[in-house]
Design a protein around this nucleic acid. Structure first.
Lengths: 174, 174, 174, 174
DNA sequence: AGTTAACCGAGACGGTACGTCGCGTCTTGTT
DNA sequence: AACAAGACGCGACGTACCGTCTCGGTTAACT
């Protein structure tokens, strides 16, 4: 009954209760507990399913442009209903090991997709060789998450362009 | 009654209740509510007081070394009791505007301190001129928070050295 | 600050708090506690003062008529604001010895006034001699309080006339 | 959980809290609230159950003797644990409509039992015909409740004998 | 006239109980 | 057999008052 993610969108993560999810889903609480150990687990599964539906990393041959496209897509996602849920899950992960595992599992896939594209960039002679690509992902997405989670200033496409431009001398060839 | 931060350290942010804080502090619940609107507010005040006690940014004249020193100090802090509280506050900030304001207020000071040191670095000819220094802070601390909050891999001094080294071509002169 | 009896009238005895009395009286709570040990004590004093203002038992020479007049007056009192307070005090007296003393003190005066009139009735040859007059008071007022406190049916002047008529063979001479 | 009436006996009505009742009953507070709206409601139900267990009015054929027996029984009850609870309930009824309804409901049964016996007394030619029997009940029990609730003097069997003797000319034949 | 003490309003304090909410477990009746 | 429905023991919530306790500020009395 992932239609219960709707509650999370309507009321926010914190105000979403398992009781309400069960009621909204027309299910008994027990049934919920039979399938998921916690509220976070339900939403993680929801996110994973939705994620599988969404496709991978763009590849037009121009790495820098693709990174711009992809970060812009991610930001659009963060601005949508998904953003509220993702925020809540990251928050939950700070106090709940299981949630942290779920969050990490979700991120792993996205990071690996990104790393895959970066590897192609190296092959294409667009990305400096010898870089720890996991680190490159963090250099790019770190500022985004920092600004998005800590709300120090608005995060949008132009912000990410600034980030990518600033990182350019460190990452890209010519 | 900031000695109630001890509970947060012992039990974690989520398991810390205002009831327990009051009991530990030998105070009535009402007294707590008279002074702070929420658990987060108490801890934010505690963090701010402690922060005021701690000093500012190192300045040896060598910007890169100072950044290494400072990030290393911050990481040590994150590994200490403070880390658990800070984690909890950032989590709370995701679902609570007031907490978010407090977190932002705390961060602002640290960021401004960092920006101050970066400005000196520009004057000293160690940092590239023309950079948005707020952005530079995010380039440096973004990866740190990303990795620390999302727990994708361990964060330690050597990790931050990697980050600074990777950023070097983008930030530093020669 | 017996103007605080107004609160009792407005909100009922149970909902009247010493805090509210103090606020309404424009006094500090401490000042209230300096003068009275409890809410009941305040109201008892208020009742006593008001009682002293009201006069005694009617005496037209016709005992039966006087009893009708007096019971009717009492009932009118019970229907007024005083009734609500008196009800509350009697209730409080069930769980509070001090309140019980106050209630008994107030009643004593009224009962003695009634007994005084009854004694005159004996002298006048209207009341059977040899009766325990305290008991006679109870025979008359007992049904009234029973019906008023337990609310088994409406109490009004005609009810009291029935009571007096029914008691007549037991009390009055011809 | 009528075993919670024990608390009322031990501590008195006023000092009995729903919290303590729940604890003593080994139940959650919510469970108490699910079944009864207030402390008074619990005790009323307890009294009603106990009342159903106790039998009705004695009938030896001698009305006056039966009234003596019954009032004496009632007084013994008032002196027992039940007395404390009944006192508290009558007190509560003064400020609480629901409690008043409960008290009235309980009384109704007893009054009707008494009226039943009085009717037989009329048939047997022991009680004056033409009396409002409801009123007769009040003439008998009114003094008892008056004296018991207002504590103007001790109530005991000999007191009730005095009452019945005094009422005799008004009520009984020969 | 200046100082001092008593008393006051205001309201913070440590508590206790309130009535509500949601937890995770359990029982019951239905399909 | 799995399910919805929801009761259950529990624990924390945030609120209301309790009775006690400082606080300043204002009188009033007495040097």
């Amino acid at each position: 009954m992932d239609a219960a993610t709707s509650l999370c969108v309507e009321l926010g993560f914190a105000a979403t209760t398992i009781e309400a999810i069960a009621a909204r889903a027309g299910a008994g609480k027990q049934t919920i507990y039979r399938w998921w150990p916690s509220k976070a687990a339900i939403l993680i599964e929801g996110v994973e399913i939705q994620r599988d539906a969404r496709a991978g990393f763009p590849d037009t041959g121009d790495l820098r442009a693709d990174l711009r496209t992809q970060t812009s897509n991610v930001l659009r996602l963060f601005d949508s209903d998904f953003g509220a849920i993702w925020r809540g899950l990251i928050a939950a992960a700070q106090n709940d090991t299981a949630a942290a595992d779920g969050v990490r599992r979700i991120l792993r896939v996205s990071i690996d997709e990104c790393i895959g594209r970066l590897e192609k960039g190296v092959k294409d002679g667009q990305l400096r060789p010898g870089l720890d690509l996991e680190l490159v992902v963090e250099l790019i997405y770190g500022p985004m998450y920092h600004t998005w989670l800590l709300r120090t200033r608005p995060v949008n496409a132009s912000y990410m362009n600034q980030v990518l431009d600033a990182l350019a001398p460190a990452l890209f060839i010519t």
